[in-house]
Amino acid sequence: MGCFSSKKTKYTPGYEEPTVLASETSFSVSEVEALYELFKKLSRSIIDDGLIHKEEFQFALFRNRNKKNLFVDRIFDLFDIKRNGVVDFGEFVRSLSIFHPDAPVSEKIAFAFKLYDLRQTGFIERDELKEMVVALLHESDLILSEDYVETIVDKTYTDADTKGDGRIDQEEWKEFVLKNPSLIKNMTLPYLKDITLAFPSFVLNSEVPDSE
């Protein structure tokens, strides 16, 4: 039997080189390395397999693995780019990059559209919008009358559905967001600017000198 003394780090499945991920996203190499520390922690929280499962995502956000939330489900599904039910490191970094304060607004607008296009028809349909409003009211224990919900949805369609065909397409969505920038406020996480401060342990594991 040989004695192997390797310093090579064991990476999680779906690991990609920080230099590659940094070149394709809004993150620096150091930030990608810090995100790897976070990713390892999240991906081992319930099922120790180096991949983020929906339960782990929910647990991180709500401290409750069974708490159902329509919007967390949608965000997880969009993070799961390969659509295999789990989020690997590459998917995690590429998806979080959209939430970076420096990410292009066009990416944020496109991501929000996909989020709201629940059934992925390429349009935000009126019944999808109503379903999301009802879900939000339900999860917040807020009560609004059916008539009032209808009025709000109608008003939104009057403003956003400029072509008047009863659904919001990507072009209409973009125009609507540019008129109402607060609609993509959720697509920016200021925290991502400080990710290297939040996870300083990446410095110990860094294999790439950061030229930035």
């Binding site: 929280s45 709201y116 879900a135 939000l136 996480l189």
Partner: peptide
């Protein structure tokens, strides 16, 4: 006012990903 349905939806805590970064 100018409240629209998307403003209401955006109030969901499901959008707040900052929980991912909090120490467990």
């Amino acid at each position: 006012g100018n409240l629209n349905a998307f403003d209401i939806i955006s109030l969901s805590p499901g959008f707040d990903l900052s929980g991912l970064f909090e120490e467990k």
